[in-house]
Nucleic acid binder design. Sequence first.
DNA 1: GCCGTTTTCGGCCCGACTGTTTTCAGTCG
Length: 573
Amino acid sequence: MENRDIARIFNEIADILEITGGNPYKVRAYSRAARNIEDLSKRIEDICREDKKALREIPGVGEAIAKKIEEIIKTGKLKKHQQLLKKVPPELLELMQITGIGPRHLKLLKEKLGVKNTADLEIVCKQHRVQDLEGFGEKTEKKILDALGDFKHSKGRMKLDQAKEYATSIIQYLKEQDKNINTVETAGSLRRGLETIGDLDILVASKDSKKVMDSFVSYPEVKTILSKGNTKSSIILKSGFQVDLRDIKKQKLGSALIYFTGSKAHNIHIRKIAKADGLKINEYGVFRRKKNIASKTEEDVYKTVGLKYILPELREDRGEIEAASKDKLPNVIELKDIKGDLHMHTRASDGAHTIADMVIAASQKNYEYVAITEHSKGLKIAGGLNEKELARHIKKIDKEDKKIKGIRILKGIEVDIKDNGKLDLSDSILKELDIVIAAIHTKFNMNKTEMTERILKAFDNKYVNILAHPTGRLIGKRKPYEIDFEKIFKVAKKRNIMMELNCFPNRLDLKDIHCKMAKDIGVKIIISTDAHSKQQLNNMEYGVITARRGWLEDADVLNTFKFNKFIKGIKRT
DNA sequence: GCCGTTTTCGGCCCGACTGTTTTCAGTCG
C-alpha cells in the first residue's frame, strides 16, 4: 500500500462527507491529512511498522486518522470508507470535477433527479429538468451542460514547459493591447514550478481595468468566457486549459502575489499565524483592524508575520514556514550555478546534432564541461552503440575535445541495465569512459523488490557513476516503476553513485520530494537535460526549478562544482 | 477530526463572481 493510495481513501472520504453534508471542518481535516500523507518522503507503511506512535507526528493526523491508517495497512481497506462509498459511489464523486458543480448541487441532482454519473447528468440537462430545481435556473443548466462537454474532452494538466509557453503568449498579447500596463506576472502553480499545471493565473497592474479585462476575453485563442468582472476574469483556451486574470493595484502587488501564488496550504498556514497575532491577511494586504500595514512587496508581507522571504518553489507547507521563522531556509540552487550538463545524445545514437553542435551550444551557456552519452547496443530502436562503435566514438570525442576550446568534453555512455541487473556493455570498454550513466529502458513491469534488486545489482558494477531517470516515469503517460528509494539511496551514498534529476519536462525524474529525501540521506544529485538536440539543452531550467522545490543547495548537486572538484567528486568508492 | 505560550473544548482563512435572488448561497481559487 503506497502513500498515494492511502491519501486517495481519505480524499474520497472528504468528498463524500462534503456531499452528504458532513461537518465542513471534518471534511477539511480529512483532506489535510490526505495531502500531508501524499507529501511524505517516507513510506507510511514503514513509519507504521517502525513506530506506530510516529504516525501522530504527521501534521493533520490525530488519534482517529492514525487508527484508520493502521486499519488500511493491516486490512488493505477501511470500513468507514467502504460504507461511505455505498452512499456516494466513485462515478458520482467524479462529477465534482465538473466546473460549477460542488457538493450542494451534486446533492440536489442526486436526490431530486437520481443522477448517478456523467451520462445521467447529460440526459437530465437536455430534458431541461435541472433548471426547475431550487437554486438552479436556465443559465446554470446550460453552464453545466457546457462544462460537461469540456470535462469529457479535458486534456488533464499541462506540462511545465507547455504552461510556460501559453503564459508567455498571453502576457505578450496583453502588453501589446495596452501599453499602460505596469506589471504582468504569472502566479499559481506555474510560478511555484510544479511538474504539471492545472490552469494559469496571471496578475496585471493596469491603469484601466475595464480595458485589460476586455482585451483578455477577446484573446484570439479564447474558446469560452467563464466569467468577466472588474478585477477578475476567467477563460478557457481552445486547447482546453483555463486561464484566470486578476487586475490589482500596483501598491498591493506583494500581497496579491502571495495570495495567487499559493499554495493553498501555504497561504492558510501564514494566515493562521497572522490571526494569532491579531492580524488578517488577504490579497489586498496585511490588516491590523482596518489598517493595511503591508502589501507592496512579498518581503513586507512575510515580515509582518515574523517570517523571512520564502521562494515560490518552497511554498507547499512542507516545513518552509517553520524554517523561515527560524531563519533556516535553504539557500537553494539557481540556474547560473550549473557548471556542466552530463547527459546528452548526438547523431551517433538517436540525437539530432553532432558532437561539435552540442558542445558549442553548451559552451554558450558558460558551462565548464559536458559529457556525451549515447545509448548502448541493447536499445536498438535508439541506435545504441556496441563496444566497437563506442570505441570509435570515444576517439571522435577526444578529437573534438582537443579542437573545441573553453569547455571540457567527457566521454560517457547511457548504458542499459538489463533485466538481470547486468550492464549492456562489457567492463573493458566502460573503463575507457569518464562517466557511466546506468538506465532502465526495458521491462518496466517488475515488482518493487525485483526492480530494486535489479538496480542494486547494477550498482555492483564498479564503473557506474549515475543512475538516470531513477523511476522511469513519463508524466501523464507511464507510471513510475516502484523502487525502494531509501534502500537505493543508502547504497548509492555508500558507493558514491549519483542520482540523476532528468530535466525533460515529461520526466522530471527524480521528482521534488524524492530530491529532498536524497538530500536528507546524503546522496548527491546530478541535474541533466538528456538533450537529443541543441534546443533541448534549454530544459535545464525545469530541472533546476524541480531541484529548488526539493530544497537542494549547491553542495547537494555535483554539477554545480568546478571541473576539478567535479572530477574528484564523481570518483567511485 | 485536529489542535493548543490564550485553550483538553471551542474554535477552525478569505474574497470575487454568478445566478437566482430580493439579500444571498454556491462555487471557485
